[in-house]
Amino acid sequence: MFTAAILAVLVALTLAVVRALRGPTVFDRLVGLNAVGNGAILLLALFGFLTGRPEFLDIGIIYALLNIIGTIAVLKFFRRGDLGYAGEEEEAGS
């Protein structure tokens, strides 16, 4: 059953990469990046259960956090044209 699920996730990953490669705008590619990150997380969890090591789930959580950081950085760059912009709501130290 896990093998079938892994195959399904691989197909989804392929579709996401196709979207990211063909995407006419940057936002299509960004959605592709997010989908690939999610696919990587799912693949990580499924592979952990397949090989009998469910502690891989912790690493999946770290992947999810990194995915959020990357997306926020890209979107902030797009909105402000600048990463060092300290908004009103955040007090960046450096």
Binding site: R29, G32, L33, G37, A40, F56, I59, I62, Y63, G70
Partner: peptide
């Protein structure tokens, strides 16, 4: 777009390293 595609490449690379049973390297890559 190249930056975004680079992120995708890193995630795929991390998954490959995970399948090769190098979990710590995969985490560093991600």
């Amino acid at each position: 777009s190249v930056v975004v595609l680079g992120g995708i490449y890193s995630f795929l690379m991390a998954t490959v390293m995970l399948v090769l049973d190098a979990v710590d390297v995969a985490m560093t890559e991600a």
